[in-house]
Amino acid sequence: MNVVEFKKPDSENKVVEFVGFGVSISGKQIFEGVSFPVYKNCITAIMGPSGSGKTTLLRSINRLLDEFCDVKYSGKLLFEGRDVINDGVDKTILRARIGMVFQRPNPFPGSIFDNVVYGLRLHGVRDKKLLEEVCIESLKKVGLYREVKNRLHRPAYDLSGGQQQRLCIARSLAVNPHVVLLDEPTSSLDPTSSAVIEELLTHLKKECTIIIVTHNLQQAGRISDYVAFLYPNEDLVSHLIEFGQTREVFFNPKESLTESYIAGKSG
């Protein structure tokens, strides 16, 4: 296994880049020929109808897909310049650099503190003081610290849904990832909590690159800088229809499919 530090990219660098990328699960092709870059310190939204492989695309970035399904990749998936599919990248290092947040808030059993420092402990950080500082810092980043500072060692399940989701974001931030993947992070939350999280993401992009899968077109329009639009063809295999700056894609789409999708959904 190669131990090579992923280079922190400079500003022009593409943190993630899909090059003719395709995935098939148990022999069924989900999408193919997907190529687009993800730029540093930007929010890139992946949108498309249900079943268009958005989540699958997201989960292949940190190779989480490999864990539960029989996956075959094709093409290239570059993370900070290295192909995470073919270059024998250590998945543990990859996952330490890429945080992930899920559809439903899923805190671990245990205290708020335990949740936030889970990744650090996993990677061998034992220094209690350090853990505490990072915990506080991560909670501050997601605006949760003031709400929970007196109960850091209380069960995480006591928090409300919106708070739990922010805790999960803090958990993924604690290891200082370069990229955070979010899989419809607000789909199970009420509008107020969703708004808090959206606001949070626009701040967070200063620190790390964000890739978000969303069903919600308005959300994509509000917070993302770039959008990638996936759509399945008649064989139910998805392709990238359009990629570009959000403003461009929303107000001046090149493809008629994109236009009708956006019109149909938002109109």
Partner: peptide
């Protein structure tokens, strides 16, 4: 100044090897 832990790839990899073993 925000407190951050910079985990080096090497440190992660050494731990990971142990955990995988």
């Amino acid at each position: 100044m925000a407190k951050e832990v910079i985990l080096s790839a090497k440190a992660i990899s050494i731990r990971a090897k142990r955990r995988k073993l």
